[in-house]
Design a protein around this nucleic acid. Sequence first.
DNA 1: CATCCGACACTAT
DNA 2: ATAGTGTCGGATG
Length: 915
Amino acid sequence: MNAVEIEEAITELAEQPFDAIEFPYDFLLAFGNKQTTLKRLRTGASNKSDLNGVLQTNNIHVKTCPAGSVSETLAELKASPATTKAKAKFILATDGQTLEAEDLNSGETIACDFKDFPDHFGFFLPLAGISTVKQIRESSFDIKATGRLNRLYVELLKTNPDWGTAERRHDMNHFMARLIFLFFAEDTSILNGEDLFTSTVTQMSDKDSSNTHEVISELFRAMNTAIEDRATANLPRWAEVFPYVNGGLFSGSTEAPTFSKIARSYLVHIGSLDWTKINPDIFGSMIQAVADDEERGALGMHYTSVPNILKVLNPLFLDDLNAQLEAAGDNKRKLDNLRKRMSKIRVFDPACGSGNFLVIAYKEMRAIEAKVNAFCGQPDRRSEIPLTNFRGIELRDFPAEIARLALIIAEYQCDVTYRGHKDALAAFLPLDAENWITQGNALRLDWLSICPPTSRAVKFQADDLFMSPLEQAQMDFKNEGGETYICGNPPYLGSTWQSKEQKEDLKAIFDGRVKSWKSLDYVAGWFMKAADFGQHTDCTAAFVSTNSICQGQQVPILWPAIFATGHHISFAHTSFKWANLASHNAGVTVAIIAVSNMTNQTRRIYSLNAEGEAVMKEVENINAYLISAPNVIVGKAMKPLTEVSTMDFGNKADDGGHLTLSSAELEALKLPSGAKNKFIKRFLGSKELINGEPRYCVWIDDDDLDQARSIAALDAQIEKVKAARLSSKDAYARSLASRPHQFKTPRSADRTVIVTPRVSSEHRPFLPVEYLTTGSIIGDRNFALYDAPLWNMALIASRLHWVWIGTVCVRLEMRFSYSNTLGWNTFPVPKLTEKNKADLTRCAEDILLAREAHFPATIADLYKPDAMPENLRAAHDRNDEVLERIYIGRRFRNDTERLEKLFELYTKMTTKVAE
DNA sequence: CATCCGACACTAT
DNA sequence: ATAGTGTCGGATG
C-alpha cells in the first residue's frame, strides 16, 4: 500500500463506529497487514501482548480501554515488559473518544480526539515501512488532498469520457487547476466568505447533481468578469459576490464537465478539507500523477524531496545569498544591496514539472528577504522579489498548470507568513496577468526568448497567464543587470531508450557539432542548451542528472563540446542513490552537475561520507569525471596504447537463451553421452565466473551440423534459436537465423585465457579476474585475453586498475562496468622491462596460489570486502607493491594519488601519440 | 562486426 | 519489500 491508500483506509476507519475488540485489527489492516497476519494475531499465535491487547512483534502494541482511561492504558503499555521484548515501535491506546500514541524510537507522542487520528497518520507511517523520507510525515494534507482529487478526476472522466481525449485533456487539466485554486482561495479568505465556493455549489446545485456544472460555470464566468463589467454581465446574484480573479486562470471557456452524484459529493468533501495546509512544493509533485494514466498507480510517490532540491539550490546560489546576509550584519546599505540583488535574480527551470524547484527557490529567497527587512526595521515591507523572475518550461500540460498555481500559492503563503493576512490579501487579487511557466518541449524552445538576457531585453507585455508558447516567449523581465540561475531535474533516458521524437530533439541540438551524439543520454540536451544559453549572458546551470554523462563513452562526446563554450563545472555532487516513495523505487543513481561561465567562483565537490552526510571540498578544478583533477578526457581506443595483450569481447549468443543451458536444462535434454561430450561445453558468464556456478552451452562446428541435427533434442534447441533470432528487432540478429546452431561470434577457447567480468559489485577491493586453462566458452558478459602472458592478469588485479576502471568506465548504478576500449586499452602502464614482467607474473601466480588454498571458494567468497583471507590479501599487497614501484618507486599513499599519476601518464601517452 | 548502456532487472532473503 | 549484484538485447559506430 502506498501512503495515499493508507491515508484513505484509516480515514474510513475513523469514520466508522468504534468497535473496541476489532479496532486493533482494523488499524493494522489499514496499514497494509495481510489477513493471514491478522488471523495469526487473533488466534494469539503471534500476539505477544501481556496486557490483553494486540502486540505485533517489531511493530506496535495496541490496547483499547474503557472510556476515560486512555492515559493510564498508554502508561501500562509503555511499562509492559512485552512491549520491550517484542521491540515494538509504537504503543497506542484508545477508548473510542480519545486516542494516545507514542513513537518509542523518537519519544514523540500524540493525543487527539479519536475521529481526528487520521490527521496524524504521518506519525504512524513507519508502521507501513515508510520512514525513510521525513518529508512525507509533514505532508499529511497533501497526501489526503491528492487522494481525494484523484477520485474526483477519475469520476469526472467516467461521466465525461470526451474530456479525457487528447483534444480536451487540457480543458480537464485546466478545470482541475481552477478547482484547486478555489479550494485554496475559499479557505484563505481570498474569497470573501468562508467556504464560499463549496457552499455556493452545495446550495445552488440540485442534489441530483444535474446542474452542478452550470453553477460552476457561472462562478467561473463571474471570476472572469472585471468589476466594472459586472453590470452588463448578467450574472446571477449568488455569483456576484465572487471577486474578479483572472490573470488568465478563468479566461477562455468557462465550461465545466457534468457531475454525477458521486462526483458532486466528492467535490463537496474536498472543499471541506483545510486547504491552508497545502505545501505547494510537495503537493504539486504529488498531484501531477493524478492526470498521468501511467503514474496514477504510484499516486504521489514520485516527488523530488526537498533535501534533494536543496542539494542543487544551495550551492547554486542560496548559500551565497545567506553568506551575504551574514556578512551584512546590521549594515543598512549592505542589506539594501542584498535586497536589490535578490530582486533581480532569475531562476529558470527548463524541466520544471509541477514547479517544485521554483517554489522552493522562491520560498527560500523570501525567507532571506524577510530577514533583511527585519534587520532594517521594516518587517511589513512589500516583497521586491517578483514571481515573474521564476520561470519554467514543462512538457506535460497538467504539471504546467499546477506549477503556475503552486507559485501563486507560494507567494500568498509567504506574504501571510512575513507580512500578515491583511497585506497578503490586499495584494493578491486580481492575479497578475503575467505568465511564467511555458508549456512546451524545452529542448526545442528558445531559452533566450523565455528567459532573455538583460543585455537584449525584449519589451512585450503579455495579457494572459495561460498563453501559447509563442506568446509566452514575449515576456519582459524586471531584472536589468541581474543574475540568472538555471536548475532542475530533467528526464534521463539512455540512447537505447529514447523515442524517435527524443532522438530528433537531440539531433537538433548536437548534429553537426558533436560526433556520436546518438550515444548521449537525453539529459545531455539540457546541459548543452544551458551552455549555449550561457554564450549570451553570465549564468550558472545546475541539474540533477544520471551519473553516466560523467562516465565512460559519454564523457568524450559531451564534455569537450560543453567546455568549448567557455563553461566549466563550478560545483558537483558526486553519485548518490535517488530515492522517492514509490514502492518500487526509481532505482537510479544520480549526480548534480553545475556548469558555469562565471569566473572567480570557488569550485566545490560535494559527496556523501560513510555516514551519509554531505561533505564539501573546495578544489581548483572539477573535470568531466567529477574529480578534482585537470581536464583529462579518456577517449576510447580500439587497440591498447601500451604493450598489453589484446582484450576480446566474449562470445555473444543472441539466441533467445537457447544455446546456453543451466545444469537443469542440460539434464532435461537427456543427450546421449557421446553427443554431450561432442556438442556441449562449459560456458562462462560473469555470474559463473564470480559465483562459480556451472553453466553450459551448445557448441557445434559447421562440419558436425548434420550429426547434431540428427539428435532430436539438439535440433529442437537449434530451431528455437532460429525462431528467436527471426523475431528480433535487430536486423543483424535476424541475419544470424541462417546459422542458428552457433553463437554470433563463435570463438573457441581451447587455450589459456585471462577472464574478467563486464559488470561486478563495487564492494570488492579488487576487480574479479580469473585465469583458466579448461577450455570453457567465454560469454559476452566477460572479457577475455586469450593466450596472454600472466603479467596482464597482475595488472587487472591491481588496485591501480581498480581505480582507473572505476573512474573512466561507466558504472551500472555504482557497480563496475568494465570496458576493453575505454578501460583496458587506455590503461596507462609504464614501459615494462623483462624483469618487471617476470616479477608481475610471479605476483599473479601467487594470487592464484593463495586462492587455491581456499578451494572451492569462489571469487565472491574470497573477495568479500570485510572477509578477504589473509594470504590472499597479502598476495594482492605484494602485487600492488611490485606494480606501484614500477610506477613511482614506492607504494602510492592513496587512491587519489594513484589516479593523479594515472591521469598524468595518460596525458603523456596520448600527447606522444598525437605528435 | 564490436561494444556500450540501462529513471534497470533480476534473485535471494 | 528491499538489499545486493549482474542478465540480456537492442542501438550505435
